[in-house]
């Protein structure tokens, strides 16, 4: 049975421990002000439960390069542990920064959580 807990940081709305992955719902802007909190949370999750980490970006309205850097760092951290980082439900605005930085190809990006779970 999945378990859920609230993060101390408001940027992470919820962390769900599913049988096949850890799913993280992220909320609000991921910018210079809020990226450090996300970085800390992801580092802790990867340390505690390496494997598959699925990030739901549906409620992320804006992301800057500090947010992208946070995700690149998390990707590299989890790959060192032979895990996978999967992103899903990016809105067009968030999608565009991945395109501008030409990073779409290094991340696994899916339209929905179901598809990320099946991947």
């Amino acid at each position: 049975m999945p378990t859920a807990d609230r993060s101390s940081s408001d940027i992470v709305k919820q962390v769900r421990h599913l049988s096949e992955a850890v799913a993280v719902d992220i909320s609000g802007d991921v910018d210079l002000q809020r990226s450090p909190a996300l970085r800390k949370t992801l580092a802790k999750l990867i340390e505690e439960t390496p494997g598959r980490l699925i990030l739901n970006l549906k409620e992320v309205g804006y992301m800057d390069s500090s947010g992208v850097a946070t995700l690149v760092e998390a990707l590299q951290r989890i790959q060192r542990k032979q895990g996978r980082l999967l992103l899903h439900s990016l809105n067009p605005r968030v999608q565009s920064i991945f395109e501008i930085a030409r990073l779409e190809s290094i991340f696994e990006i899916y339209p929905s959580e179901d598809e990320a779970l099946r991947a």
Binding site: T70, V72, I106
Partner: peptide, 14 residues
Amino acid sequence: KLTDIRPGGLGVHI
């Protein structure tokens, strides 16, 4: 360089 995949350094490129 965008081929240098690492956190940070993207601001000027953007």
